[in-house]
Simulated scan of single mutants.
Amino acid sequence: MTRARFRDLLAAEWIKLWSLRSTSRLLVLGTLAIVAVAVQRSLEDYNAWPALPPMDRARITPLTEAFSGLTGTMLMIGAGSVGALTIVGEYATGLIRTTFIAVPARHRVVAARLTVVGAVMLAAGALVSAAAFGVSQAILAGRGVTVAVGDPAVLRVVAANALLAPVSALVGMGVGALVRHTAAAVVTVCAVLVVVPTFFRPTVHQWLNDLYALVPFYVWRTCLGLPVLREDPALPTVAGSWAVFASWPLAAAVLTLVAVRRRDV
């Protein structure tokens, strides 16, 4: 029996990903919704600009209007759900049995799926982040509020916004490999990525702040997604926040691999 080449596995996973109708729907509708929110927020500030005091004007930038807590939440939930469905959907239809009969080396299948989902969601996140920033920049330019990619923090914020998608998608895959039930997997993804972290606030207990600083949504909201970092020792650092962004998808990839290899189909 000829061993499947990894590029063949990538092609198969690509076909399976786009055969899920939920994938294209979530990506298209999610992108439009996030850009629409950026347009709405930017237009509100544009119209309110003449009456705003100088202090309020100083807080407005295309970065803050393009991506808010709402749009970050929408992106994480959408991407996390796509990631979960790529695993759960195949178990639900029974296609996973056919896949493992054709390719008994489960780790190679998982590696191909992680690669395809991560790459697709990275591209989707970059598109969403760039589009939201672009429309906000175009609208607020009418009030003289513009920033350049080379300005301090701009590239960091745009990149962090984009990376929310692949990070969430790979975490969603890990949850899907464990739960294997569509509704339960999506609910769990939402709870882990957004709902529970939403309630995190800096406290006087530094050990608790250190625990919060291990959560992607929290470090994005309090560090990576901010144009101007707050001088507060209780908040995450930029280096530590990037480490969190890297460690969660890595841990989720390992979890997905272990769950798929050890559990029956």
Rank of each mutant, 00 (worst) to 15 (best):
V179P: 12
L163N: 03
V186N: 04
V238R: 14
V192S: 08
N209F: 01
P233E: 13
V228Q: 15
R180C: 10
V195F: 15
M173K: 04
V187P: 14
C223R: 11
P197Q: 06
N161D: 15
S168K: 01
A234L: 02
P202G: 06
V219T: 06
L163H: 06
A191I: 10
A234P: 00
A246P: 14
G225D: 07
P216R: 01
Q206T: 03
L226Q: 15
C223K: 06
S241M: 04
V192P: 09
L208F: 09
V228K: 11
E231V: 01
W220Q: 13
L235Q: 13
T222R: 08
R180K: 11
L226R: 13
T237I: 05
G176F: 03
V186A: 04
V195Q: 04
F200G: 11
R221W: 10
P233Q: 11
V179C: 06
A213R: 07
G225V: 00
V196M: 12
H205S: 08
L164H: 10
A213N: 13
V192C: 10
T188E: 11
D210N: 12
A213E: 07
G176E: 05
L211Q: 00
A165K: 01
A191P: 08
Y212S: 09
L178A: 13
G176V: 03
L163R: 02
L235W: 12
V167N: 08
V195K: 03
N161L: 04
T203P: 13
F217D: 13
V175M: 14
P233R: 09
A243C: 13
L193C: 05
L170G: 07
A243M: 13
C190I: 00
V215D: 14
F199R: 10
P233K: 05
A185N: 10
R230L: 14
T237N: 14
G172C: 05
T182H: 12
V244F: 09
G176Q: 04
H181V: 12
A184L: 15
L208T: 01
A185V: 03
A191E: 01
R201Q: 14
L229F: 06
A169T: 03
M173P: 15
L235N: 14
L214W: 08
S168N: 04
A183W: 10
C190E: 00
